[in-house]
Amino acid sequence: MPPPLYCVTDATVPATTTALLAAACAARGVRFEEVDVGRFDPCEEVELRAGDLLFRPAVSYAAVRVEQALFAESVATFYASGDALCFDGAAAPLLFARRGLPIPRTVTLLRNDRAQQRRAVELLGGLPLVVKVPGGEGGVGVMLLESWASLVSVLDHLFATGRTPQLMTYVPEAIHWRVVVIGERAVAAYRNHPYPDDFRSGPSSDPADYEVPTPSPLTALAVAATRAIRREFAGVDILAHASGRLYLLEANFPCYFPQAQVVGGIDVAGAMLAHLLEKSERLREPR
């Protein structure tokens, strides 16, 4: 009998996410155990068995702590190693740059210093620039600033509210791709189209925009980004410029994988479960 999947959820996890994971488990005879963060008792000792499967689609601080409480080296997860569970996602852009992955030029501002801000704008090639506040979803916290006056007023607000903004070079005339990576391969890719009257983009509702990609520079970059954040599953955002250049924006774990499955018809949940089951078998092999 295959091992169960323990799924760490809370009220923020879309019902579609858990439904697709539960259906994938049912199709393979895997017991689906939902771990509700709101009902988890940290005073009770919970120990998963060797080879059990563990995944956290929830993104809250409490959900991360529940996952860490359940984790063991003998449990199959999407982490490349045990200490990857404690990886600081905010450090990802620096890690990408040090690995030579192509990202838009980025400067993280640590204080509200006008002289430093002018130097950063010059270093990044001038205005317009993108200001990003890490931690948002769906483009929230990503702003396009086209004048010095608008830039400094936004930075004043961000620093006053305790945020650490990033300035990034603006890449116009580019297609925004989301590539879903599992293990060492891209299992789905789709275009994100610009919202009306906005520079930001969102996922397409046209099934024709979704594909199971063949190996390419785009998929190779997505796999490299996933490997850099020490994960075996991620939704990777990449800009493909008209010149042919690629710019890595971010690698998200967890990510909203149902988009590719519900609209594009690609069985991402099944591929996720297959990966965890294969890893579980390796973990249970005699050593």
Rank of each mutant, 00 (worst) to 15 (best):
Q261G: 08
Q261A: 03
L48D: 02
A23T: 03
T226L: 10
A11N: 06
A27F: 00
D10K: 01
A24D: 06
R200C: 10
G141R: 10
F253L: 05
A90H: 15
E281I: 03
P215D: 13
L218V: 10
D267I: 01
H176N: 11
A234E: 09
M272H: 02
R245W: 01
G202P: 08
A120K: 07
A174N: 09
L158H: 05
R282P: 04
R56F: 06
L248W: 02
G235P: 07
P194L: 06
Y195L: 15
A271G: 04
C255E: 07
A160T: 09
A97R: 14
P42T: 03
A242S: 05
G141M: 12
T161S: 06
A271Y: 00
T161K: 02
T106A: 13
A19D: 12
V268R: 01
V142S: 01
L249I: 15
F233I: 03
V13F: 07
A91M: 14
A188N: 12
K279Y: 00
F199C: 03
V8A: 06
R282C: 08
M143C: 04
T77E: 07
V30N: 02
F40A: 01
P254D: 04
P165V: 02
V107A: 14
C7A: 08
G202F: 12
R191I: 10
D237W: 05
L246I: 10
V66Y: 14
E278K: 06
A242G: 01
A120T: 06
F87M: 08
I229P: 03
V262R: 08
D206Y: 12
S60D: 11
D113N: 13
G183S: 09
D10R: 04
S150H: 12
A260L: 04
F159H: 05
L124G: 11
A186E: 12
A69G: 02
F55W: 13
T9C: 12
R284P: 00
V142W: 03
A220W: 10
F233W: 14
D36H: 09
L85H: 02
V236T: 05
A120W: 06
V263P: 01
L277S: 01
P57I: 05
A260P: 04
L277M: 07
P3A: 06
L124H: 06
T16C: 05
F96T: 10
S205T: 14
T16G: 02
G38D: 13
P213Q: 15
G89L: 14
G265K: 02
S280R: 01
R99F: 08
Y210E: 09
A63K: 03
S150Q: 13
V181H: 07
L151R: 10
P93M: 13
L248A: 07
P258V: 08
V46S: 10
V171M: 09
E285M: 13
Y210H: 14
L273S: 00
L239C: 13
G270C: 00
I175P: 00
A160P: 04
R118P: 00
G89T: 12
L70W: 10
A220E: 15
H193K: 06
G183F: 08
L277R: 15
Q68K: 14
A271K: 04
R49H: 10
L283K: 09
Y210T: 12
A50Y: 01
F87W: 10
D156I: 13
D52C: 15
F32P: 13
A19R: 14
C25R: 00
H193W: 11
L5V: 01
R200E: 09
A76E: 08
L129H: 14
G270I: 00
P217W: 04
L218Q: 13
V107Q: 11
P104G: 04
V35F: 11
H193T: 08
D206V: 14
